[in-house]
């Protein structure tokens, strides 16, 4: 046994099916992208294309400067495309092009390549980009418009969660119904408006076994329970748990970002802990934090705990556990 050296995490995971997996994820995101184009028009397509092209270009550029040889294969492995689409889904429909490009730069260079590239990054690149932009450009990152399709011209609007934070629950219930959240006729970033499109993508990933049920279920479940408890305590003040699951980035995070295999635990027990942690942190930030939405912060915080979770949920190999005398 001594010849096996255990290095500190993150460990390299299997990359046999890497490209297949990545393109499955891309397919799963198509409904969300289509819905965003349907609601926000060509602007949303422009943001998506900019983010994807930006990610691939920055990756090629970095690999070139770093003197790597397999540039073409790395750029085309699909991971930069996934990151690009995820960044776009996390941006508001009014994002200027330069901001989308800064997001791609941060995601690929700061969050991914500096750590050693795919498989070595501790944090989900798209989320690092989102948080970087949210902190740096709070004005541009919170300029929402209502989807133009149902309500005439796109007008500036608050997201349901933003409205909840500044105007209280009563205003939110007057403005939106649960059906609005489900279909996506609300203000929000490209990928957080339509719950139904995200659910279709999520189910596809589950069916293709790209992701497993543990993280989404434990994340959404713990968010449901956490916000449910407060809702039961004071129904006039706290929104109901269904609201919390359908709005903001909860579904997007649960299916597409928390499940990123590089930045989530390996074992089933680990995944359950990881998801539950995200759910509770999201609830805490939404109900008591300074920001209206907390999914991205919650996932990043739990990302940083993954090595620890992996360590304590490691499956004991057969023969390694002493039989109790």
């Amino acid at each position: 046994m001594k010849s096996l050296v255990i290095t500190s995490s993150p460990h390299v995971r299997s990359i046999e099916r890497l490209t297949d997996v990545m393109y499955d994820v891309v397919i799963a995101m198509i409904p969300a992208v289509l819905v965003s184009i349907y609601f926000f028009g060509l602007q949303s397509l422009l943001i998506t294309v900019t983010a994807v092209v930006g990610c691939m270009a920055f990756e090629a550029l970095f690999l070139k400067i770093a003197g790597k040889t397999n540039i073409r294969a790395t750029v085309l492995d699909g991971s930069a495309i996934v990151t690009g689409i995820l960044i776009a889904l996390n941006l508001p429909p009014t994002s200027p092009i330069w901001m989308t490009l800064i997001g791609s730069l941060i995601a690929i260079i700061v969050a991914k390549q500096v750590f050693g590239g795919l498989g070595y990054n501790i944090f989900n690149p798209a989320l690092v980009a989102r948080v970087f932009l949210l902190i740096s450009f709070p004005v541009q990152m919170t300029r929402w418009v209502n989807p133009s399709f149902f309500k005439g011209d796109a007008i500036t609007a608050a997201t349901p969660l933003g409205m909840l934070k500044t105007d209280g629950l009563a205003t939110v219930s007057k403005t939106f119904s649960h059906l609005d959240f489900f279909l996506g006729t609300i203000g929000g970033s490209l990928g957080e408006v339509s719950a139904v499109a995200l659910l279709i993508g999520g189910l596809y990933l589950l069916m293709r076994k790209v992701i497993s049920w543990e993280i989404p279920v434990s994340m959404l479940g713990s968010l449901f329970i956490f916000t449910g408890i407060f809702w039961m305590l004071d129904k006039a003040r706290y929104a109901d748990p269904i609201f919390h699951i359908l709005t903001g980035g909860a579904l997007l995070g649960a299916f597409f970002m928390a499940t990123d295999m590089v930045t989530s635990p390996i074992t089933r027990k680990g995944m359950l802990i990881f998801g539950a942690g995200i759910g509770v942190l999201t609830g805490l930030i939404r109900l008591f934090g300074g920001y209206p939405e907390g999914v991205s912060f919650a996932i990043l915080i739990m990302n940083s705990l993954v090595p620890l979770i992996d360590k304590y949920t490691e499956v004991k190999k057969f023969g390694l556990v002493k039989v109790k005398a």
């Binding site: 800064i102 970087f132 902190i135 740096s136 450009f137 709070p138 004005v139 541009q140």
Partner: peptide, 10 residues
């Protein structure tokens, strides 16, 4: 529009 995060600790 300045990149505010640069004058913050991160």
């Amino acid at each position: 529009s300045p990149v505010l995060i640069m004058i913050m600790p991160p």
